[in-house]
């Protein structure tokens, strides 16, 4: 009997506990308690709001792209198969073609180049900061990396367009034309190209990767490093054979987050890599990414309600799903990682 009254049925547990508490307090709702409730409610509202915003975005995308009123949505006018397999993207032409592959290919190029640059740089700087750097060096480098993260992306875009392409890529790939020497090699490079955009996006994700990876590297218990040293490891052994392998899943999650950031990057690639959908794997040509296309339509003169306008939502939906997937995978990996260490 006594155990019944103190131990309510599981489903009623929260309510039961709450009422027991109030009874104990004798319904004395002091100022402190009111404030506590108010704070809790405020925090709850914030959480609900962010969730609602996400849901609202998903709903808008769905209505405009998948199933709108009166068959107005994009995929009610263009078949999914055509969209996903078509190799031409020409919404502005009179003969409109909606094959998303050139845009996907553009985004893929940027992402791969950014990953090739950002991942090693980010990981190596994280290893340096967590394992090698003296506290004083760290105190200089860490803020510098954070500044890198704070630079507006539009600045990166102009940096790529006005510096990296003309002063780095062109002198290296077409010295013949740049220096007017006929016998040197001369590889054609567009003024807008995927390479320069990919490079700056790679630089952009370095701080993200390095700070997330540094956190997971530092979380590797000190006792593990000591055990390594006690077996006669050098610092390099401890880094490469103990610390990094122990933190691998955390590092992987950081990579995925950074890659999804690269996929979603807009301003820099719009400026640096161009706005011409091209189905190519040559990083020296002008391309258009999915994000750049969205900017293009929004800033152009496509009338609301036209198929061209609707195509924006279809592309946005693809982006949304891809980044959602990447974030989900990285969350899963991070969770597994936490389990290992607790």
């Amino acid at each position: 009997m006594t155990s019944d009254s103190t131990d309510p049925a599981p489903s009623a547990a929260p309510a039961g506990r709450m009422s027991a508490n109030t009874r104990e307090l004798g319904f004395r709702l002091t100022w402190g308690r009111t404030r506590e409730v108010a704070i809790q409610f405020g925090l709850f509202l914030c959480a609900v709001l962010t969730t609602l915003v996400t849901l609202a975005i998903a709903a808008v995308l769905f209505v405009e792209a998948v199933a709108g009123p009166g068959g107005s949505a994009f995929f009610q006018q263009v078949s999914v198969v055509e969209f996903l397999t078509g190799t031409e993207w020409t919404p502005q032409y009179t003969e409109k073609k909606f094959g998303v592959l050139p845009l996907v290919c553009g985004t893929l190029q940027i992402t791969v180049i950014a990953a090739l640059i950002g991942l090693p740089l980010g990981l190596l700087s994280a290893i340096y900061l967590s394992e090698y750097a003296a506290p004083r060096t760290r105190a200089i480098i860490k803020p510098a990396l954070e500044i890198l993260a704070g630079i507006p992306t539009v600045v990166y875009g102009y940096f790529a367009l006005t510096f990296i392409t003309p002063y780095v890529i062109k002198p290296l790939l077409q010295p013949g034309a740049v220096f007017k020497i006929s016998w040197l090699w001369n590889i054609p490079v567009d003024g807008f190209n995927a390479l320069s955009g990919g490079i700056v996006v790679g630089l952009m994700i370095v701080p993200l990767i390095s700070s997330l990876s540094e956190d997971v590297l530092r979380a590797v218990p000190r006792t593990l490093r000591e055990a390594g040293y006690a077996l006669g490891s050098t610092k390099f052994d401890v880094c490469t054979k103990i610390v990094v392998p122990s933190a691998l899943s955390g590092i992987f999650a950081a990579f995925l987050l950074a890659v999804s950031r690269a996929i979603g990057e807009t301003m820099a690639v719009t400026i640096a890599s161009g706005q011409k959908p091209t189905l190519t794997l040559n990083p020296l040509m002008q391309i258009e990414t999915m994000t750049a296309y969205i900017v293009n339509v929004m800033s152009g003169d496509a009338a609301v309600g036209t198929i061209e306008y609707k195509s924006l939502y279809a592309v946005a939906l693809v982006l949304f799903l891809v980044t959602l997937f990447m974030n989900w995978v990285s969350q899963m990996v991070l969770e597994r990682y936490r389990e290992v260490y607790q």
Partner: peptide, 10 residues
């Protein structure tokens, strides 16, 4: 050396 807390590598 063997430590107080066991320290297997993952």
């Amino acid at each position: 050396m063997v430590f107080q807390k066991s320290t297997p590598f993952p």
